[in-house]
Amino acid sequence: MTPVPEHDSYFIERGPEPGGAGSVGRAFGETLRGLKTTFGRLVEGPTTVQYPEEKIPVYPRFRGRHRLHRFEDTGLEKCVGCSLCAAACPADCIRVVAAENTPDHRVSGGERFAAVYEINMSRCIFCGYCEIACPFDAITMGNDFELADYNRSDLIFTKEMLLAEPLERTPLRAEGE
């Protein structure tokens, strides 16, 4: 687009009329240019990540499958069964049934503990509100995202599953990488 000052207008260069001899020459040249472009892609090589063998590391803030935590020194569960996570959950996928700790049966650090703690992973939207709601940092979002299973009932994660270390560790990116 070049300005034409005396007419206060712009001159627009258009391609040759389709179907004419000029368009054939142009099409041929453009075809060669296109061939060069695609050949460049061939030389660059694939950018595919061979997924099951090769995994892209996730960021530390990545919200994957939840983890429940214990106190490192005493081994007691941090969760006291307050159900704040269940209240915060927009997908309503957390079910908590609390029970009293007794002196000879102590599970958690508080007065009560979670007798049942279930997260239905087929409903969870991985928003992380449970993590924010938790007053004791008992539940955090982990890094695992490979949660596929054959049965829906297998996707209801119990307290034992959430407390356990993940079987296969998802590669994690260092901060700032």
């Binding site: 695609t38 892609r41 061939l42 660059e44 090589g45 694939p46 950018t47 595919t48 061979q50």
Partner: peptide
Amino acid sequence: LGRFQHRY
């Protein structure tokens, strides 16, 4: 064709 499109 895959190689031309950045895949394997």
